[in-house]
Computed example of a mutant assay.
Amino acid sequence: MAQHAAESVAEANREAELRIAGYESTKEELSALRTAATSPDRTVTVVAGAAGSVLSVESRPAAVRLSPQVTIRIARV
């Protein structure tokens, strides 16, 4: 009986370790996610990470000719 209990505990530990490894793998995959959004006129592209942090902002030469009001409107898209 005691051996059966020990085997059950060992099996539960193995299953828990597998679940933890799966969670860690999923966490790594999610942290690697990236998404990009480009303004309708294609002058600005922003790349964001999984947590919503801005990773990069790229602008085309035409973007520097935009008024501040237009730039703000594009940034809110």
Rank of each mutant, 00 (worst) to 15 (best):
T71W: 02
I20R: 15
A2T: 09
S31H: 11
A62W: 00
R60T: 06
L66W: 00
E28C: 02
S59G: 02
E58V: 00
S39Q: 04
V57E: 01
P61W: 00
V47P: 00
L18A: 15
D41V: 03
I20F: 10
A5R: 15
M1F: 02
T26S: 08
A51F: 03
M1K: 08
S8F: 09
R14D: 14
A62D: 06
R34I: 02
Q69M: 07
I20T: 13
L55H: 07
E28F: 03
Q3C: 07
A16P: 06
L66N: 05
V64Y: 01
L30R: 11
S8N: 15
G52T: 04
S31E: 15
T35L: 09
E29W: 01
E15T: 12
M1V: 01
T45G: 01
P40G: 04
E58Q: 09
A62L: 04
A6E: 15
T43F: 02
A2H: 09
A5H: 13
E58H: 04
V46A: 06
Q3P: 00
V54T: 11
E7R: 13
A63R: 04
T35Y: 11
Q69H: 07
G22L: 06
H4W: 09
R65A: 10
E28K: 13
P68G: 02
L18T: 14
L33N: 05
T26H: 09
S25M: 08
E15V: 14
R76E: 15
K27I: 09
S53R: 14
Q69K: 12
V47S: 04
A16I: 11
G49C: 06
R60Q: 07
A37Q: 09
T26R: 13
R73F: 02
S56C: 00
E58A: 04
V77G: 13
A63F: 02
V77M: 13
R76T: 14
Q69L: 09
A10D: 09
S67N: 06
R19K: 13
E11I: 05
V9T: 15
E7A: 14
I72G: 05
P68E: 01
V9R: 15
T35W: 10
T35M: 10
V54Y: 02
A50W: 07
N13K: 15
A51E: 14
S8W: 07
S39H: 05
A32P: 04
S53M: 09
A51P: 02
A2L: 11
A48Q: 08
V46M: 06
L55R: 12
A37V: 10
E15R: 14
A37S: 10
T35C: 08
L30T: 05
A10H: 11
A75L: 13
R42V: 02
A37E: 06
L66V: 00
V70S: 08
V44D: 00
E29S: 11
T71D: 04
E11P: 05
Q69D: 07
E29R: 12
A63D: 03
A62V: 01
A50E: 07
G49R: 04
T38W: 01
S59R: 10
Y23N: 11
E24N: 13
S8G: 13
P68W: 00
E29Y: 05
A21I: 08
D41E: 08
E28P: 00
R19T: 11
V44C: 07
T38K: 10
A75M: 13
T45H: 03
V64S: 07
V44K: 10
E7T: 10
S8T: 14
S56W: 01
V77N: 14
